[in-house]
């Protein structure tokens, strides 16, 4: 399952929900919109993302828009909208954590 988070972890508990509930086997996490702030280097959420137990992707256009290019933590994968589409197509199901 592809889990999509579009909120900052400093604003809502959407990311916390994924990390608590999601079945890790076969899962991936995609951060879009304000969700990308979770992948900021040296942030309070960096450690929890590293321990997510699933691949983490960030949407590059949203990263760029927010000036995060040089402040991203290691170990996250950058995708564009085409990569977003591939992630949705490549997983059996998808859930947006609104």
């Amino acid at each position: 399952m592809l889990h999509i988070v579009n909120k900052s972890p400093f604003d809502t508990n959407a990311l916390a929900g994924v990390l608590r509930v999601a079945k890790k086997d076969g899962a991936a996490l995609l951060l879009i919109e304000d969700g990308v702030y979770a992948a900021t280097k040296n942030s309070a959420t960096e450690a929890s993302l590293k321990a997510a137990g699933m691949p983490v992707y960030v949407l590059q256009p949203d990263v760029d828009a927010r000036g995060l290019q040089s402040r991203l933590m290691d170990g996250v994968n950058m995708v564009d909208y085409g990569g977003f589409v591939d992630l949705v197509a490549g997983h059996d199901n998808v859930q947006s954590w609104l």
């Binding site: 579009n6 879009i32 919109e33 304000d34 256009p61 564009d80 909208y81 085409g82 977003f84 589409v85 591939d86 949705v88 197509a89 609104l98």
Partner: peptide, 26 residues
Amino acid sequence: VSEGPYTHQATDSAYQFAKAALAKGH
């Protein structure tokens, strides 16, 4: 799409997703 235009990015993201999916032949 669950949010209106301009206040939330949701419809922008949906549009960009749709455009990218079409570009890939979906």
